[in-house]
Write a protein that binds this DNA or RNA. Sequence first.
DNA 1: CAGTGGAGGCTTTTT
DNA 2: GCCTCCACTG
Length: 728
Amino acid sequence: MTAAQQIVDGLNAPQREAVEAIEGPLLIVAGPGSGKTRVITHRIAYLVRVVGISPYRILAVTFTNKAAREMKERLQHLVGERADRLSVSTFHSFCAGVLRRDGKHMGLESTFTIYDDEDQMNVVKQAMEQVDLDPKRYPPRAVQGVISRAKSLLMDSHALRQGHQSFFEERAASVYQRYEELLARNNGVDFDDLLLKTVQLFRDHDDVLASYHRRYIHVMIDEFQDTNVAQYALAKLLAGGHRNICVVGDADQSIYSWRHADIRNILSFQKDYPEARTVTLAQNYRSTAPILNAAKGLISANRMRLDKELWTSQSEGHPVVVHELYNEEEEAQFVLGEVDRLGKEDGFRAGDCAVMYRVNAQSRVLEEACLRYGVKYRLVGGVRFYQRREVKDVTSYLRLIHNPDDEVSLSRVINVPARGIGQRSLEEVRRWAQGQGLPMYQALLKMAEGGGADPLLSARVTRLVSGFVDLLLGLTEESRRLDVVDLIDAVLERTGYQAYLQHRYEDSEERWENVRELRNAAQEFRELEPPEGLGLLLERQALVADVDSYEESPDAVTLITLHQAKGLEFPVVFMVGMEEGLLPHFRSRDNDQELEEERRLCYVGMTRSKERLYLLRSFRRGFMGGNAPSGPSRFLYEIPRDLTASPAPAPTPQRSSWGMWEPPAPSPRPKPDVDGLKTGQKVRHATFGEGIVVSCAPSGDDYEVTVAFDGAGVKRLLLSYAKLDRLG
DNA sequence: CAGTGGAGGCTTTTT
DNA sequence: GCCTCCACTG
């Protein structure tokens, strides 16, 4: 078999077409489960092995490190060691590389710091203070949001000032300008800058762009529906010469518009590349027909979309289970009961199952239930490793050593561990530095040298700060000869960080473990010459959300938000909280575009499932301390009824061999005899038929009625919605 | 300056 | 209900 045959072997017709379409622009519209990654990787393999393109000349860009890693692994299988020469990276790390190399044109030293959200907020607050904007009236979070959006639209502060669309934006523009000045002074960039400054660099420096044109002659962009304007501009610039640009995406899976992703990029692509070929991958290899058709039914309710006629050859399958539980505890209990049952009856393992939810707050009840029933679980997300306070403290020292202009990190560590330099002292130092016209770090050095001789400084501050400066100078000196692991050890030792943790935190053990983990992560860069290892560790720290996520465990249930579930698949998926207010989320209620995005989010969740799909809702839900009835999600009504089913009688979870099982607390029973509906009253319900009232209790402004129906079992209903006819 | 308690706040979060 | 941020007290 020739290489070409080998590569296209086993691909369906459109997949093959996409792989073989190597000249010029190509848009691949890839439905869920349609073998998208397969097509991208095989297309690259085809370029390398059949067309003979050097892997060195191919650039593939993804959004996540995980996607990049997976792609590389698959490519290693397809093209062997030549895969090492391919450029497969995320937008942000690609840009970071460009700016490390050529950022000097943009006023950046190669040691620049990449600020995360937390650092960004600190700088925004500082900038707001300096332009005299009251954080009570202008929430820094919102100001930061405006700045970030502007950057993603490639607007600098002047452009925002010109093009502001509200008073708020106008004020934010002045913060933006100050914010930029601060970042520049810190030799720092934020996430958005990585993209923005790279685009600006390419636009303003033809020679730099030309060097990338010489290198890359094929560019591929994954998850194209998630690109923002800056990312699209970047892709377009890179493809400028050769126009060999291949983008892959699915507008129905666009769920990040709130992070400024812009589906209109797909339209822009067709306009900018009128000669582009479009290939649609419509065959779904993941889900059974009932699941796929249920998802299709749902998504067809979106008005702003083009239909794709997805299909599957797996015509047989279980119907989608739609079920209502009383509250979130019962919902969680039902999930675990089903996990148990599916294990016993159908041979699924806990690791085959994922529970998906709209907001992180929903995970707690699920975790508790897992603990109670002794089911292992893997919680995806939560507080990210590198974001933990103790990890951030230590990396701030490292950042400062690497980039002494980084005042954000300086301010963070100058009093951690506590050394008597509080807010006031820091202000004093800051003001003094400003008076001297010196950057902070320089000012500190000068202060330490002067040894308290300056009449504008208190002796106390000078003494304390000098101690800190000595510490820093010592560490900086060490950093020239120590590898990055030893450097971390030196930081920990000289700062007395472990003792500080023990003194300050109850959970110091765990925190210390995290610090150790950071040290572990640094091992990878141990062999490198001093400044390089540190630089790479810091870049990893900034651009990789999590240390390589734990091993997938075959007997752990996955708990995950719908957003994070994108790109994954599971044999069994439980979507919990299918309620108005949660999915769709109440913040999206009054906006059609946002509502459609919620629907896409629901669609993404449903299409993660291969064999079994459960859509669960609870009748009452605790929310912000309160506990209120919640209505079924409108999305439930958009799924064709003939594809759904009610579950078998609710199973009780069984105790696992290693688990500590306790019977769940009984649900609170409402009191009888309210509003004329007495216990024992016969009633008729439009859907559930005839039944007998078990109880009735006030619930907010309403009444909650529990009815034992003849056919449909016991239901708890809200009187105002339920329309119960009294019989007899 | 540092540690504590009350008020407010609150989707999602690839990088 | 829980976490974060700020203001106040020791």
